[in-house]
C-alpha cells in the first residue's frame, strides 16, 4: 500500500515506512529499471558532464566550472588522498575523485525537489562500490606484499607478545576480510536510509496536519513538522557530504594499507 492511499483512506496519521523504498518498474517488462536505477544513471551523467566541463580544457587561470572542479580536486587530494597515500596520492586521484563526486551527487539526489531519493539507500549500490574497493584492496595487497606476506602483515603485526597472536589473529582476519568491507558499505547505506525516512516523516507530519487534516490542535504540530523538515534537510545535506567524504577516505585508507603495510 502506498502512502497516498493510506492518506486518503484513514483519518489517522500513519508514519511512512519501507514503502518509501519500493518502486514499480518505469518500463513495463523491465523489472530492474526502477527510479533508483534511473537516478543513479542520471547522477553518473551529471558527474561526467561536470568533470568534463571542469577538466577537459584546463586553463592556467581557472574560471567557472574549472574553478569549482579544482576546489573539489584540492579538497579530495588534501583531505582524502594525501594523508593515506602520501606520494602515491596523485596516481589514485582519478578513482578517489570519481568516487567522492559520484557518491555525493547520489546522496544529494535525496534532497533535490522532484527526485528526492538518495540512491545508496538501496543497499546494492554501496555494496557494489565497497566490493569493488575490496577487490582492489586485495589485488594491491597481493601485488605489493605477496599473497602470504599480505596475510602475515595483516594477521601478525609486529610488536605483540607471541602467545597473544593466537588470540588476536582471528580478530584481525575477520575484521580486515569481512567486517571492514561490510561496514564500509553499511555505514553509507544506513545513513542515507535513515535520513530519507526522517525527511519523509517530518514532511508528512507537516503535510498531514496542515493540509490533509487541519485542526486547531494539529496546526502547531504541522508547523513544527515543516520547521523540522527544513532543519533536517540542512542537516541531511551535511551528512550527505560527510558520508561521501568518509567513503572516499576509507577507500584511500584501504588502498594505502595495501600498498604499505602498517609499520
Amino acid at each position: 500500500m502506498s502512502t497516498l492511499t493510506l492518506l486518503a483512506s484513514g483519518d489517522e496519521f500513519k508514519a511512512p515506512g519501507l514503502e518509501l523504498f519500493e518502486f514499480p518498474p518505469i518500463i513495463n517488462g523491465v523489472p530492474w529499471f526502477t527510479k533508483p536505477v534511473l537516478v543513479a544513471i542520471l547522477s553518473t551523467v551529471i558527474v561526467l558532464i561536470f568533470t568534463w566541463s571542469a577538466f577537459a580544457k584546463p586553463k592556467l587561470v581557472p574560471r567557472g566550472m574549472q574553478n569549482l572542479g579544482e576546489m573539489g580536486y584540492t579538497f579530495v587530494r588534501d583531505q582524502v588522498a594525501r594523508p593515506f597515500l602520501g606520494k602515491d596520492a596523485d596516481r589514485w586521484m582519478g578513482l578517489l575523485l570519481s568516487l567522492f563526486f559520484l557518491i555525493w551527487i547520489w546522496n544529494l539526489m535525496g534532497v533535490i525537489p522532484g527526485i528526492q531519493f538518495p540512491v545508496v539507500s538501496h543497499i546494492a549500490f554501496p555494496f557494489v562500490l565497497a566490493i569493488s574497493i575490496y577487490i582492489l584492496k586485495l589485488y594491491l595487497g597481493f601485488k605489493h606484499q605477496g599473497f602470504f606476506g599480505y596475510f602475515k602483515n595483516m594477521m601478525f603485526p609486529p610488536g605483540l607478545p607471541k602467545p597473544i597472536y593466537l588470540l588476536l589473529a582471528p580478530i584481525e582476519f575477520l575484521s580486515n576480510m569481512i567486517v571492514a568491507p561490510f561496514t564500509h558499505a553499511v555505514r553509507l547505506f544506513a545513513n542515507m536510509f535513515a535520513g530519507h525516512i526522517i525527511l519523509a516523516f517530518f514532511s508528512l507530519v507537516g503535510f498531514w496536519f496542515l493540509f490533509e487534516n487541519l485542526t486547531p490542535l494539529g496546526a502547531p504540530l504541522g508547523v513544527l513538522g515543516v520547521l523540522m523538515t527544513i532543519g533536517m534537510t540542512v542537516f541531511e545535506m551535511f551528512i550527505q557530504f560527510l558520508q561521501a567524504f568518509l567513503f572516499a577516505m576509507l577507500a584511500a585508507m584501504y588502498i594505502g594499507n595495501s600498498l604499505h603495510p602498517e609499520h
Binding site: 580478530i171 575484521s175 567486517v179
Partner: peptide
C-alpha cells in the same frame, strides 16, 4: 571493525 570482529569471533 575490530570490536565487532572480536565480539563475533
Amino acid at each position: 571493525s575490530y570490536v565487532l570482529s572480536g565480539i563475533i569471533v
